[in-house]
């Protein structure tokens, strides 16, 4: 029973003084059943781990999308009003106004499946069956010119999908501005003159309530 993996004992060593270390298991909780794990364990990884059995075509996906998604995301994923845009935006990522979509930005197709399966349609989450999620995922990939019109997405061919922007993600390089080691901050006579270069009042987008209050002043 007192089987402790190495990694835990190392962590205990590091934080010994700060927190009460447990000498042995407390025997709290109970074992999760297979059915319980199956009910909740819906996450999908880039390597395909977690994908349920199933398949769906672009054509089927278009139908589901029109019925359950297009009201917010638009027939072609262009986004209605301020609801999220799901397609297009290719070539905008380096521009002043990047349009980040599944096709222009997302590094992995598995994220599309994982997210729709758990969170969409908005307000009726986890109502789609695996085949339906394969189909709408295929349709969104098609809208982003990643798969052809006659494509059928399935558990078996999922890992073969490569996203165009995958290579553009990199690890966090911070701190990326000078620290005390490199440059002590200036305290006296740091600049000759100071000019105001930007003002919030010019843009004037602070919520109404405060604008009204301000005008009353």
């Amino acid at each position: 029973m007192l089987k402790f993996p190495k990694i835990i004992s190392i962590a205990f060593g590091l934080t010994l003084c700060a927190t009460p270390a447990l000498a042995e298991k407390l025997n709290l909780g109970r074992e999760a059943t297979k059915a319980e794990i199956k009910a909740w364990d819906i996450d999908v990884r880039p390597d395909g781990q977690g994908l349920p059995e199933g398949k769906g075509t672009v054509e089927k996906g278009e139908q589901i999308f029109a019925e359950q998604c297009a009201a917010c995301h638009g027939d072609f994923g262009e986004g209605v009003d301020r609801w999220p845009v799901l397609a297009g935006g290719l070539g905008t990522i380096k521009s002043e106004d990047p349009v980040k979509t599944v096709g222009s930005y997302w590094p992995y197709a598995s994220t599309v499946f994982d997210y729709i399966y758990r969170a969409m349609p908005f307000g009726n989450a986890q109502s789609l069956k695996p085949d339906e999620v394969y189909a709408v995922t295929a349709y969104i990939l098609y809208l982003n010119e990643i798969v052809a019109e006659d494509f059928e997405l399935s558990k078996n061919n999922f890992a073969s999908i490569k996203m165009p922007n995958e290579k553009n993600f990199f690890a966090d390089p911070r701190p990326d501005t000078p620290t005390m080691k490199k440059k002590k901050p200036c305290m006296k006579n740091c600049k000759k003159e100071v000019k105001i270069t930007k003002r919030a009042r010019v843009i004037n987008v602070t919520p109404e309530e405060d604008k009204e209050a301000a005008s009353k002043e």
Partner: peptide, 24 residues
């Protein structure tokens, strides 16, 4: 997992089109 909130969102897009990820 590369979930939506660590790919589509919460990644930091740089001027050159590359994006930082896991900027926790």
């Amino acid at each position: 997992w590369h979930a939506r909130e660590e790919t589509s969102k919460y990644t930091d897009l740089m001027e050159n089109g590359k994006a930082r990820r896991f900027t926790w």
